[in-house]
Amino acid sequence: MISAVKLSTQTSAAAIQPDLEVQIAEAARFVRRHTIASIYRATSGHPGGALSCADILACLFGAELNVWPTATNDRLRDRFVLSKGHACPALYAIAAYHGFCDKADALNLRKLGSPFQGHPHVRDLPWVETSTGSLGQGFSVALGMAMGMKLQKINARAYALLGDGELQEGEVWEAAMCAAHHRLDNLCAIIDYNKLQSDATNEAIMRLEPLADKWRAFGWTVFEIDGHNIPEILSTLHLAASIHERPSVLIAHTVKGKGVPYMEGSPAWHGSVKLTRDQAADALAALGAEQHEIKELLDV
């Protein structure tokens, strides 16, 4: 949304303007609060993996993606696919923050009649770009978008945000092979590598390491970053866009439940979570919300 970074020829973290970092950090804080509030109101949802990707989403929508709420049909726009569809409370929140939907509406998560389904649906909300919720598919869809834009000589990029557990789906590696083979340098994958999945750690369920080596072996340009370090995310996204002939992947090391101390690093907060009001209030307080803000988010 803010063009300063895209126009800059600088790629180092130091070149990122401090006020942009401040704006994006504020957006990420909004995403986390909104995520907690909507999941509390829904009485179900996946907070852990939504909180872990909040900073990445804030960077994408704040400075990287060429998408606009006034032109969601623009054929020249970038495409962002939340392949880890269960993290959609965070997507709804960042979209609301940037005016793609109403902030209060987006709190109406997982309710009959609401377009804010438990997993994003493009026929309810066009700006989610494709429906996700079955791991692996969103990545392939983003690949198809990247291919289709190249065929039409559209100079835009396709981004897919994947979970780490999602990488256990075979389709991901079909797509990884395919994107490198077709030299889709307009495709950027971002892995929210919070090390936890539904039931336990990745390590316990199905080992992913050596992850960077796997992607390199598949022909991708690999960046490993701190997925909560805003300047690093921004500069790496920018750098990835300059790579020719190869797709890029950002392996973003994150903390599941980031920002809510009692959730951080615990798989218990992956999904199907029913938050009590006290838990939601504690989480919002930890995210710096004032008492009146907590009341507004949870009780109105």
Binding site: Q137, G144, G148, E174
Partner: peptide, 25 residues
């Protein structure tokens, strides 16, 4: 003509992406 290799899952989902950007896959 787009070759996807022996990988039908990726091919079918990618068709969704191609259609999303205006192609007729």
């Amino acid at each position: 003509f787009i070759q996807f290799g022996i990988a039908e899952q990726n091919m079918v989902a990618a068709a969704g992406g191609l259609a999303a950007v205006g192609m007729l896959p």
